[in-house]
Design a protein around this nucleic acid. Structure first.
Length: 404
DNA sequence: CGTCCACAGGAATGACGGGCGG
DNA sequence: CCGCCCGTCATTCCTGTGGACG
């Protein structure tokens, strides 16, 4: 048994702590480098802010406002703008002493219809059990509460496309319909969707009610991203500790994807953290951004691969066994062999088909359905990652490692 | 022009483990 | 601690389908 030398750690920790305490740190305020921080001034979203403000303004006259749908890809500012405007509105309603309540939920994080409603209930101080009562009953209690207290509710449903795709539009139907039921009190919905085609999943009645007003958030241009990063850098960093080249590179890298501000800000933060940990003069340079980019990509695939269930890992390996494009049938045969080799239960063809679709969604493989006439209809599949990458992660899995 | 391949992918159902209220 | 419900993973059964082949 090795006895740890406490003194050694003392010295190292002292160094680490002293560095954190010293004034010449690169990052002054971490808060401004978070992508969920809401700045006082949201650049390049003026028209959207005004539009939403106008749509919500009936609230100030104590009447219901239109339902609203916000569209745009990730990192285009939908959530931050919605929070910004609703927060401002709520401030005004406090001054005016109105019974307005704001509820926010991210349906993907909430997970189920039940928990979405639970978030709504929280906003009106209605306690509902974690589980045990039916969704319809929860909704009824909420409706009763709203009517009784004449609440005016703004319900922000973030990533609403997730809710609809996994649970259908029942809940939205009930919510939009219920808003007609109470004459005192009202419920207005602001839906936020990443998916531009999400409307196709909705029943026409729900759609017409929900999208009384629509707003599209375009991606940020590289130049706009640069300005946003500049703004954040001024707030977050000590003076003269970052190069404009580094900022430009962050903006360019994020801009080349689809103008994703969240990604740009994350990249900036990770770069700064790397620069800060480095020995020396604590300058944020382009080289740090390049390291950060690699780190982000690596972490992302590492997490995706590592969290794969065992069977999905075997399926992925079976795909990687071939180096050209192959069919589902090929994968299944190889998969069966592999299972036999390591003595693992073989799943059905149907299940493998499903697992392949999941791997496709994760972006680890890609497949497209192709008909070969007489020779059937199948999915042509090929891997999007190298065997080498997968191997590095999978060696840690005791069941899989014998295969490598 | 119909057949039929080799699957895709939806629906219903079951096995299993975890969390919660009583 | 027990029963209950829920979510997840998987199975079974099923219907649908583009186009080369005969």
């Amino acid at each position: 048994m090795i006895k740890l030398s406490e003194n050694n750690y003392d010295e190292v920790l002292d160094l680490v702590f002293n560095k954190a305490l010293s004034d010449n740190n690169l990052i002054k305020e971490h808060m401004y480098l978070r992508s969920d921080y809401i700045p006082d001034n949201l650049p390049f979203r003026e028209s959207q802010i005004i539009s939403i403000g106008q749509s919500l303004s009936p609230i100030l006259r104590n009447t219901k406002c239109s339902n609203l749908l916000l569209y745009g890809k990730t990192g285009t500012g939908k959530t931050v703008v919605a929070k910004y405007v609703t927060n401002k509105l709520i401030q005004r309603t406090h001054e005016l002493n109105l019974k307005v309540r704001l509820a926010y939920t991210n349906t993907r994080i909430a997970g189920t219809s039940y928990r979405v409603l639970s978030n709504l209930a929280d906003s009106i101080n209605l306690e509902i059990p974690f589980t045990g009562i039916a969704v319809g009953e929860v909704l009824q209690r909420i409706i009763d509460r709203i009517s009784q207290n004449k609440y005016i509710i703004i319900f922000v449903l973030d990533e609403i496309d997730y809710l609809v795709k996994t649970y259908g539009d029942n809940l939205l139907y009930e919510l939009t319909r219920s808003s007609d039921k109470f004459s005192p009190g009202s419920l207005s919905i602001i839906g936020i969707s990443n998916d531009l085609q999400f409307k196709e999943y909705l029943d026409t009645r729900v759609l017409s009610s929900l999208s009384e007003e629509e707003l599209v958030f375009p991606p940020y241009t590289t130049e706009e991203l640069r300005a946003i990063l500049e703004q954040r850098s001024k707030l977050a960093f000590s003076k003269q500790t970052y190069s404009s080249g580094a900022i430009n590179l962050c903006a360019a890298l994020a801009g080349s994807e689809h103008g994703d501000a969240r990604r740009a800000i994350d990249l900036l933060r990770i770069s700064a953290e790397i620069a800060e940990r480095e020995e020396g003069d604590n300058q944020l340079e382009e080289k740090h951004v390049r390291i950060a980019l690699q780190k982000i990509d690596r972490d992302r695939t590492y997490d995706a691969l590592n969290s794969l269930p065992l069977q999905a890992k075997i399926v992925l390996l079976s795909v990687l066994y071939f180096d050209s494009t192959i069919s589902t049938g090929d994968v299944y045969n190889k998969y069966c062999d592999t299972c036999k080799k390591i003595g693992i239960e073989i799943l059905t063809h149907r299940r493998i088909s499903g697992l392949l679709s999941e791997l496709d969604l994760l972006g680890l493989i890609t497949g497209s359905v192709i008909s070969q006439g007489r020779y059937g209809r199948s999915k042509r599949i090929h891997a999007l990652i190298s065997f080498q990458t997968v191997k590095e992660v999978f060696v840690e899995d005791p069941v899989i490692s014998p295969l490598l």
